[in-house]
Amino acid sequence: MGRRSAFVELGYDPAYGHVEDYDLWQRAWARGYKLVNLPGIVLRYCVHAGQVSARKSVEQQNKADSVRKRHWRVLLPGLGDGEINGIVEMLREGRGHTPHAFCQAL
């Protein structure tokens, strides 16, 4: 859920098909919109083999990685491509810990 004005201002970017929501959230954050988790369940959906996340998982992962790379470049512009790629790989693999030196940079 969100304010209509934010969706109108930011819009969906067709270059990020299959991850357009993720891209929108990242751009909203970068523009200063406040993002929060709602405490209750607001949506239920069925998971099945024919859904996009199952049929297009590789394409979806690659596009999500490109959104993540753009996000980290905005957040920490001093990092090089190798460092950003390392962060994205770590997140993709589900390794949620970060090196102490990286945390100090935040």
Rank of each mutant, 00 (worst) to 15 (best):
M1K: 13
G2K: 11
R3I: 13
R4L: 10
R4S: 12
S5L: 09
S5P: 04
S5Q: 09
A6V: 13
A6N: 04
F7A: 10
L10V: 08
L10Y: 04
G11A: 07
G11I: 02
G11N: 06
G11K: 02
Y12I: 06
Y12E: 07
D13G: 01
D13E: 05
D13V: 03
P14C: 04
A15W: 05
A15M: 05
Y16E: 00
G17W: 00
G17Y: 00
H18C: 06
V19C: 03
V19P: 00
D21V: 01
D23N: 02
D23L: 02
D23E: 07
W25H: 02
R27D: 00
A28H: 03
W29H: 03
W29S: 03
W29Q: 02
A30H: 08
Y33S: 00
K34Y: 11
K34F: 12
L35P: 00
V36D: 08
V36E: 08
L38F: 06
I41L: 07
V42D: 06
L43F: 11
Y45T: 12
Y45S: 10
V47K: 12
H48Q: 08
H48L: 08
A49P: 08
Q51N: 15
R55H: 12
E59F: 05
E59S: 12
Q60V: 09
Q61V: 15
N62D: 14
K63P: 02
K63L: 10
K63E: 05
D65R: 05
S66E: 07
V67C: 07
R68A: 07
R68G: 01
K69S: 13
K69W: 02
R70K: 08
H71M: 11
R73A: 08
L76I: 14
P77T: 10
G78E: 05
G78S: 05
L79V: 03
G80V: 09
G80C: 05
N85K: 08
N85W: 04
G86W: 02
I87F: 06
I87K: 02
I87R: 06
E89C: 14
E89Q: 13
M90W: 12
L91H: 11
E93V: 11
E93G: 12
G94H: 06
G96K: 11
T98F: 15
T98V: 15
T98Y: 14
T98E: 14
P99Y: 14
H100C: 12
F102V: 14
F102W: 11
C103W: 11
A105K: 12
L106G: 13
